[in-house]
Design a protein around this nucleic acid. Structure first.
Lengths: 140, 140
DNA sequence: GTATTTGCAAAATGTTTGCAGCTGC
DNA sequence: GCAGCTGCAAACATTTTGCAAATAC
C-alpha cells in the first residue's frame, strides 16, 4: 500500500509510531474516497481494527491532519468531515449527493487575490476554497 | 438605522416579527464588523437587550442566516462564527489577528471552475471561498 | 386578541482529558 | 525495555428541544 508506506515514513520521521488504529483510519479514508465524519470513520475503522475507540479516532485525525495526510473539510451544514489529502496545496471538489471528493491543485487565484488586496487593503496570506457539485455518478 | 429597517421589512415579508433580541443580535454584528461566535454575540447582545438568552441567540442566528442578513463563516480551527452579510453572492476576507471582516463580490472564478469541471467530470454548482490575512490596522 | 417568540431547565450531541494497561520499535 | 499509544470513563463544551409566560403586530 503506497499511502500507508508514505504514512509510516512520515510518522517515523517525527517520532510517531504506525499503529493498528492509525492504519485503520487511513485505510478507511483512502477506501472511501469521500468525506467522512469522525463518527463514521470510527464505525468503519472497527472493521479493520476491532477495538478502535472513538477517542483514538479523534486523536488520530488530529495527528494525520498535522502530518498533512488528511484534511478537514467544511460542509454547508456542519463542518466536521475529513478527506484524504495527497499533500501540498490543494482544494477539494465535493459531491453534494454522495460526498465523494476529488482534489485539484491548479487554483489560479493570483488575479483575484491581487484585486481584493488592492480594494480592501488587507494583506492576504491564505485562502480556503471548496467546490460543490455532482460527481459523474450522481449526475442525472 | 438602515440595516435594521431592511431587516424589519424582510422579516415582515415572511411573517416574522422584529423583536428586541433579534434587533440586538443584528446590532451587535453590525457594530462589530468582525466575525463573532454565538457565545460572544450573546454576551454583547445583553448590553442592548438585558435578558437575551443564549437559546434565543441561536434561534435568531438561524433565522437571520435564512433571511440572508448574516452568514456563517468557518475559521481554521472551529467553524462557529457569524458575520454580517450585505446580501447577494459574496465572500469574506477575515483578519487573522482581530477577526475583522470585509466582503467582496467580484469572485471571478469562471475560468477556474471550467477547468476543474473539465478535469474532474464534476458538475460544479457552488463554491465557497474565504480569504485570510491582516487588515490595515493589524499590519506590521 | 392571537400567533409568534422568548427564556428557562433539561436533554442531546460532539469533543477533550486523566490515567492504568498495552504495543510498536 | 521504554516511550508512545490505546481504550475506557468521565468531564467538558456546544447546540437543540419542550413548555409556560411574555411580546409584537
Amino acid at each position: 500500500m503506497l499511502v500507508e508506506d508514505t504514512l509510516a515514513h512520515t510518522l517515523a520521521q517525527r517520532g510517531y509510531k504506525l499503529t493498528q488504529p492509525r492504519r485503520a483510519v487511513l485505510k478507511v479514508l483512502a477506501a472511501a474516497g469521500a468525506t467522512l465524519t469522525p463518527a463514521e470513520i470510527h464505525r468503519r475503522a472497527r472493521s479493520h481494527c476491532l477495538h478502535t475507540g472513538l477517542v483514538t479516532v479523534y486523536r488520530t485525525l488530529d495527528l494525520l491532519t498535522a502530518c498533512g495526510a488528511i484534511r478537514k473539510v467544511h460542509h454547508a451544514d456542519g463542518c466536521h468531515a475529513y478527506a484524504l489529502a495527497s499533500g501540498g496545496h490543494a482544494h477539494h471538489v465535493i459531491c453534494e449527493c454522495c460526498q465523494s471528493v476529488v482534489e485539484f491543485d491548479n487554483c489560479d487565484l493570483g488575479t483575484l487575490l491581487a484585486a481584493v488586496q488592492r480594494r480592501t487593503g488587507y494583506q492576504i496570506s491564505g485562502h480556503w476554497l471548496e467546490l460543490f457539485g455532482l460527481c459523474p455518478n450522481c449526475r442525472p
